[in-house]
């Protein structure tokens, strides 16, 4: 999917992304594309480089090499002006993993969304902003009661809804969800997945879904990239990769998901076999 040269529309294109910490290659020649309104899963375990990749995309880390383009605009270097900074923010937004740490504890739900609207649409007047805010809250299933609340009065699921609404407030082309449902209880996780699927359907926003959880990735993404030790080991349509994995590591990941016929001993064996040639 990343090598096709046909004029298929591309929202996000990443090529040859590299990042080294000390002598550790965290991300090594990672590339992929995301069509407008598409959903791409980035799957890996801790140390796979998936989070570093996500952080480079939103500008929290600077890549050593490679290019990141959104609608053809390059964004690998640091923004220089305020206008550039804001334009960047409207390209990619992110929802973080921990709903308990990703909201300013002093700022109410209403204000934390409203300040994004003020920043990105300063021309809008007060009633205009209020209408947009109500729309955003409604989209993520929060009521006026929650709007007036401080984050600590909200449950994990509610906070994650706030984080999503806040990210959507900048009307980004691409939304990065960095383990965005990993910290939630399953029953709540399903609510948020449901919500995300609906938002994508209605708004045509592209998702980059960073996760360790293959089962979740299967339900929320069209395409998937499997990362291991900073490198892509396999990529393709999510359904194909999960039903007929080509790389032994992908197979190991799939086998590791607990379920019927789960055999930890065999998984351990495969894992050792996979690690052996590198050690």
């Amino acid at each position: 999917m990343s090598t096709s040269t046909e004029p298929t529309p591309v929202a996000l294109e990443v090529r040859g992304l590299c990042r080294t910490f000390g002598d550790h290659k965290a991300v090594d020649d990672v590339g992929f594309t995301l069509p407008p309104g598409g959903s791409l899963g980035i799957v890996g375990e801790s140390g796979s480089g998936k989070t570093t990749t996500a952080r480079m995309l939103v500008g929290l880390e600077t890549p050593d090499a490679g290019s990141i383009t959104v609608d053809g605009h390059e964004r690998a270097h640091r923004p220089r002006t305020r206008a550039e900074r804001l334009a960047r923010a409207r390209e990619i937004q992110m929802v973080f993993q921990d709903p308990y740490l990703s909201l300013d504890p002093r700022i109410t739900v209403h204000d934390s969304i409203d300040e994004v609207l003020r920043l990105h649409a300063p021309e809008a007047d007060r009633p205009g902003r209020a209408a947009r805010l109500a729309e955003l809250l409604d989209q993520v299933g929060l009521g006026t009661r929650e709007a007036g609340a401080l984050p600590r009065r909200l449950s994990g699921g509610q906070r994650q809804r706030v984080a999503i609404a806040r990210a959507l407030a900048a009307s980004p082309r691409v939304l990065i969800l960095d383990e965005a449902v990993a910290a939630l209880d399953v029953s709540i996780q399903a609510q948020i997945l449901d919500l995300l699927a609906r938002i994508r359907r209605e708004q045509g926003i592209g998702y980059l879904f960073v996760s360790h959880d293959l089962a979740v990735v299967r339900h929320i993404t069209d395409d998937v990239v499997v990362l291991r030790n900073g490198r892509i080991v396999e990529s393709g349509r999510t359904a194909d990769v999960l039903s007929a994995p080509q790389h032994p590591y992908t197979r190991l990941l799939i086998d590791s998901v607990p379920g019927v016929g789960w055999d930890p001993e065999r998984i351990a064996e495969n894992r050792r076999a996979l690690a052996a040639p590198e050690a």
């Binding site: 900074r85 804001l86 960047r88 409207r90 973080f96 990703s102 909201l103 300013d104 002093r106």
Partner: peptide, 22 residues
């Protein structure tokens, strides 16, 4: 390094407003 501060950076705020307001 807390995500809430990082999320303000991702939103495009300047360092000055992130520091003084958050």
């Amino acid at each position: 390094t807390r995500p809430y501060i990082e999320s303000y950076r991702v939103q495009g705020w300047s360092g000055w407003s992130i520091c003084t307001r958050h």
